[in-house]
Design a protein around this nucleic acid. Structure first.
Lengths: 328, 328
DNA sequence: TTGTAGGCGTTATCAC
DNA sequence: GTGATAACGCCTACAA
């Protein structure tokens, strides 16, 4: 490895001068600067970031915690975070937490030992107490963590209301809900939005609600049961697209025609929704944008640790596709 | 930050002793060891990995280069690599290269400055010349890079043959191919496998081959054109699942019934294939396993840089679903 | 068995 | 303008 010392010798200057040239800081004569640059080029010198990190206590690395990158909601988020990180010359670390508090803590500690500069967290299980004690910036993404940390989220409750109202307006009389895990705040908000619209109707029944674990398989089973026991259901709002697709397949399995006999609407706007048959109507989140913003906010916090940056909430958009239709 | 020095003071020993305790190395009296451990615990001391890295020239970090994590083939691969990394106390860095040689080189240099310990690369554009010059272990994944680097791949050509033979055996007479980018070796191997089976048939026509860019959209367009201009085609082998799904949608768009009028088979075995209608018949790769093995091999190379580890090739498996059927 | 001291490669603070 | 030099926190000869 070629070091500053090698460069300094070749250029006949001190390491201090080389450092000054590298960082464009402090006075340095134009001619010596050229000499140094020439030496750097000749030796193909590259500064050692580890030494730099040791001195500065910062690593130019940030991490993203997600439950599982295999859930199709997260790759786009990860891509956004990585893009912005890279753009700002930060290295991107990815951690799959499986919603396991122990894993989350382990990752966090390991990263702190590496002088990580900041962390973006998608989690509802993270111990906030632990987070408060550390001094690196944290940004919550998709799910709020605690008032203390800036969060980038979407209007889940309002989005759910729009979805359910849409089902209603297109003529659905008996609207059911496949809810997500209630310890995930975004998920419980979506259920609230659902209830906001239907709860007061005389046709509404508590038994129109089923719970899934945000997975395709869960929703498939649960929807099969629901549709079998409640043949009057003609509209289903699923708390995420993965579950909506499970519902789609359950209907197909039972020979129920979508959208003629049953309308289905999801939430998230993941890409797969465009490839199912019928394609999936959904409340689309600006996934890339929230990932991008979370990263920008994190980087700002890193640059100016004192400034408090407010949370941001983005709007979801109704995307009409083939799994819903106007009925009479 | 609490350092070894703090611990050494509290325990009334030298930093060297603390270091010895931390690393379980060198002689240290049982009693002093206990004193030190107590002090470590009391202060909640954690070693600074950056300082360690600086000294050792190693960072306990590995990176994975993929074209784009949003391509549904890669999240499972990434998950495997991350799992194994984490299990061995390595930190996992993810880089999206977009098949852009400039980005690849930039990432590589940035990581080398951070003393990265090894890199797993999915690429067909990476400059092998650059790679040869660096001394950190490299493992190629999914696509071979160069004889010099161990690779973990699947039997693409043989797999393609199995796929096309299967179409033939189920009664398809005119089998077309949606090929992937030919600069990707796995993709051109799959085309070779296709040709191995059909080229000698009198019914075969060069015009049964179309090229897509491994994307859903490409395949949709290209398949529409193919199916319109060649109504005799009754079987299509797509070079990956994403394109197979594009074909599925193109058939739907044209009112061609799958599998009754047209059989479709893909390659990869990504999860989405289970959620389309009809579900997708495919040649399934052991995605998690190859990711895992690539990581294990990389870590071995890191531990023993001298030992040469041979490449590994895994088998793909035919998964029969609804997009193909026995025809007469 | 333990301590001292030098070095890993940079940066920043002083003098000159 | 430029050059010593002391950190940053850890590890490992070498002494003791």
């Amino acid at each position: 490895m070629v070091t500053m010392r090698d460069v300094s010798k070749l250029a006949n200057v001190s390491v201090a001068t080389v450092s000054r040239v590298m960082n464009n800081n402090g006075y340095v004569n134009e001619r010596t600067k050229e000499k140094v640059l020439a030496a750097i080029k000749e030796l193909n010198y590259r500064p050692n970031d580890v030494a730099r990190s040791l001195f500065k206590g910062k690593s130019k690395m940030i991490a993203l915690f997600v439950p599982d990158i295999r859930n199709p909601f997260f790759p786009e988020l990860a891509r956004a975070v990585e893009d912005i990180s890279n753009m700002h010359h930060y290295t991107f670390i990815l951690c799959n937490t499986d919603n396991d508090p122990a894993k989350e803590v382990n990752y966090l500690n390991a990263l702190l030992q590496k002088s990580i500069d900041g962390v973006i967290i998608v989690s509802s299980t993270m111990s906030v107490k632990q987070l408060r004690e550390i001094k690196v910036p944290i940004v919550a993404l998709d799910r709020k963590l605690d008032a203390e940390f800036p969060a980038v989220t979407v209007n889940n409750r309002e989005g759910a209301k729009i979805a359910v109202r849409y089902l209603k307006e297109t003529g659905c009389k008996h609207i059911a809900h496949i809810a997500g895990p209630q310890d995930i705040i975004s998920s419980s908000e979506r259920m609230k939005g659902y209830l906001d619209v239907v709860q007061k109707e005389y046709r509404f029944s508590d038994d129109y609600i089923r719970f899934g674990n945000y997975t395709y398989e869960d929703a498939f089973e649960v929807a099969k049961e629901l549709l079998t026991s409640h043949s009057t259901v003609d509209g289903i709002f699923a708390a995420n697209d993965l579950m909506a697709i499970g519902v789609l397949k359950a209907a197909e399995y039972l020979g129920i025609n979508v959208p003629n006999d049953l309308s289905i609407i999801g939430f998230d706007g993941i890409t797969i929704g465009r490839t199912t048959s019928p394609t999936l109507t959904t409340m689309e989140q600006p996934i890339y944008i929230i990932g991008k913003r979370a990263t920008e906010i994190l980087l700002q916090q890193i640059e100016e640790p004192d400034r408090r940056i407010p949370s941001e909430e983005y709007k979801v958009t109704l995307i009409q596709r083939e799994s819903t239709k106007e009925r009479s």
